[in-house]
Amino acid sequence: MPTTLTPAPAELQLAELAEANRPAQLPLLTRVCEMLAASPAVTHLLVRGSLVSGTADRLSDVDFVVGVHDRDLSAFASALDDLMTIAAGALLPGWRDTIVADLGGIGFVFLVQYEGKLQQVDLYLAPASQISALRRKVAGKMLLERPPAEITTTQIEQARTHITGLLSRPRSCTELLIEHLVLAVLLHKRIQRGQRFVAYAEWHLLHTATKDLVKAALAPASRFWGWYQLREELALTPIGRSCLADLDAAVTSPAVPTAADVDAALDRVIALTERACPNALDGLADAITAYRTYLELA
């Protein structure tokens, strides 16, 4: 799908949100909203979370549900990385969100550079055929609602097949590295807010991503699930033993991390990636340098 945008439609309802709530992220929300609404494939835009409830702070993310016509979902999802990079300033390809609740679609998290800060933009793509059911589960403010063209049963099945295939596809080393980068940003937010229980959960997710990265790099055909048989599969080579030592350092770290713990984990996983799957870093060197700079300024 091309990333060329047309002007945002007049039916985009931003005024009420702006009057009720003017968080620091409102200009970014407006920019992303206008960008998404300019695509004729987009049928609905719903903003949710703290930006709607009035509880946003300077660390809050911009969180959208994006309804996409079922026939266009596959093409739109494939073009989303380019769209967010070119039009919204995303530093990295989107992380396929494994934390968000299953609402019949696909979640992505983007790290966007905006006015000298690193901001988090969450986009949950949902087929237009699922929006009515989704709205019964999700509170938020509908900013765009335009009746989609007729949706056929074939298009519904095509969208469902695309979502199922994407969610079940094994993640590449590059995708797992991006997962680490996103989770590190999330963890820094939790630590600054004092959200110890959430930090504990996301810290475990980061360690699991490290394990998955090691297996994807060194044992992609593993027959074992999860954390089983790691030593038996990986300790056969010097690189494998080195990666196991990194993983051991991760799992023996404190249960609830400090900011320094998160930074050390990030340094460790980037070094691990350079050692075990250097191709995962292709094209990301400048982005990672910028990412580290924004983290230091946060």
Rank of each mutant, 00 (worst) to 15 (best):
T3S: 10
T6D: 01
L14E: 00
E19Q: 11
E19F: 14
A20E: 06
N21E: 12
P23K: 00
R31E: 10
V47C: 12
R48E: 04
S50T: 05
A56F: 04
D57C: 06
L59C: 06
A79S: 14
I86T: 15
A87V: 08
A90I: 02
T98K: 08
D102M: 07
F110H: 14
G116A: 05
K117G: 09
Q120A: 03
L125N: 03
A126E: 04
I131G: 01
I131Y: 01
S132L: 10
A133E: 06
K137Y: 08
K141S: 10
M142C: 05
P147A: 14
Q158N: 13
R160C: 06
R160W: 10
L166Q: 15
L167D: 10
S168Q: 14
P170M: 07
T174G: 06
E175S: 14
I178Q: 04
A184H: 01
V185P: 00
I191F: 08
Q192T: 12
F197H: 13
Y200A: 08
L206S: 13
A209L: 10
A209G: 09
T210F: 05
V214S: 07
A219G: 06
P220Y: 06
S222D: 12
G226N: 10
W227G: 12
Q229W: 09
R231T: 14
L236S: 13
C243Q: 09
D246H: 07
L247S: 03
L247T: 05
D248R: 00
A250M: 05
P254F: 03
P254V: 02
A255Q: 13
T258M: 02
A260E: 07
V262D: 01
D263F: 00
A265M: 14
V269R: 00
L272V: 06
T273S: 12
C277Y: 07
D282A: 15
T289S: 05
Y291F: 15
A298Y: 11
